[in-house]
């Protein structure tokens, strides 16, 4: 009896301790970001591109990286959606549960998910060198879309597998083809798709390794898809390696901006998921 009580107590302490640790780390990150980033964060920082002496701590801002990151994120998400929706629909509507092909495709999702982002970057870089292309906005979008594809496809596959059998039968009974059924499935899993997108945009906007060689870095805002584009993670990386303290502070400002963007996106997608939840039939 005593022992049992002791055991319970120990577990309680462990659980509370672990929870506190997680919360503590989170708070420390936020504190560090705010402490060093907030003073460096100014209107200028988010509305102007780097000026002549920016990397010595003088005038200019991070608009190039903010816009570049948003463009690459949006482009990569759209590309990845365009790829994963057909694949997931094919897996779930056209193939049997026992199909070997379906098994292999799902296995490849898992493998792709495990590939580190620097490998995607290196692969993209190799292909671009082979094709004689420079680092560019398009290159970054394509490589980042490859990076997030397995995350998106797996999350979507999970919700698509839960499409109710009754609804499938009801749709088929109306004389719908499998292709016409896709619309019904997409409506039903819309909240799941929104979540899948959120999971992947968080990854898309935060990754430095994939864009290092494929999107490049520049002080101006790209005006055509062939130009290189700056990104926030790289802005953090470059500025953090500067010996000038003001520039280092700006790295924290960039990190703060990145965090805020991810936060806004997650709130938006929650709202979106909720909006489409109402159509869902449970």
């Amino acid at each position: 009896m005593r022992l049992k009580l002791l055991e319970q107590k120990i577990f309680r302490i462990l659980m509370i301790g672990a929870s506190c640790l997680v919360l503590g780390v989170l708070l420390m990150i936020v504190y560090a970001l705010l402490r060093r980033g907030l003073p460096a964060l100014s209107w200028e920082m988010i509305t102007t591109v780097p000026g002549g002496g920016f990397y010595l701590g003088k005038e200019g801002g991070l608009l190039n990286a903010i816009v570049g990151s948003l463009m690459i994120m949006a482009g990569a998400t759209i590309l990845s959606l365009a790829l994963s929706v057909p694949v997931v629909m094919f897996l779930n509507l056209y193939l049997d549960k026992t199909s070997r092909l379906a098994y292999l495709v799902r296995l490849s999702f898992d493998v792709l998910l495990g590939v580190p982002s620097i490998v995607y970057g290196a692969f993209g870089f190799m292909v671009m060198v082979f094709l004689g292309l420079r680092a560019s906005l398009t290159g970054g979008m394509i490589v980042v879309s490859l990076l997030i594809f397995p995350i998106m496809a797996r999350a979507m596959d999970e919700v698509a597998a839960m499409f109710p059998k009754e609804m499938k039968e009801a749709t088929l009974s109306l004389g719908a083809t499998k292709f016409e059924m896709v619309r019904v499935v997409l409506r039903q899993i819309a909240p799941g798709i929104a979540t899948a997108c959120l999971l992947s945009v968080g990854r898309a906007i935060g990754d430095a390794a994939a864009v290092l060689f494929t999107a490049g870095y520049t002080d101006s805002i790209p005006t055509s898809p062939g130009q290189p584009a700056a990104t926030l993670p790289l802005a953090i990386f470059f500025q953090l390696s500067s010996p000038v303290p003001q520039v280092q502070d700006r790295a924290y400002a960039a990190a703060l901006i990145l965090t805020i963007i991810v936060l806004v996106l997650s709130v938006l997608s929650r709202w979106f998921a909720h909006k489409y939840q109402k159509n869902k039939v449970s």
Binding site: A170, A176, N279
Partner: peptide, 21 residues
């Protein structure tokens, strides 16, 4: 098959509306 299914309307035990308006 599609034609056959269109010539019959199946009503299931539990109503199953499609996820739309």
């Amino acid at each position: 098959v599609i034609d056959v299914r269109k010539r019959m309307g199946l009503l299931s035990q539990r109503p199953c509306p499609l996820p739309m308006s």
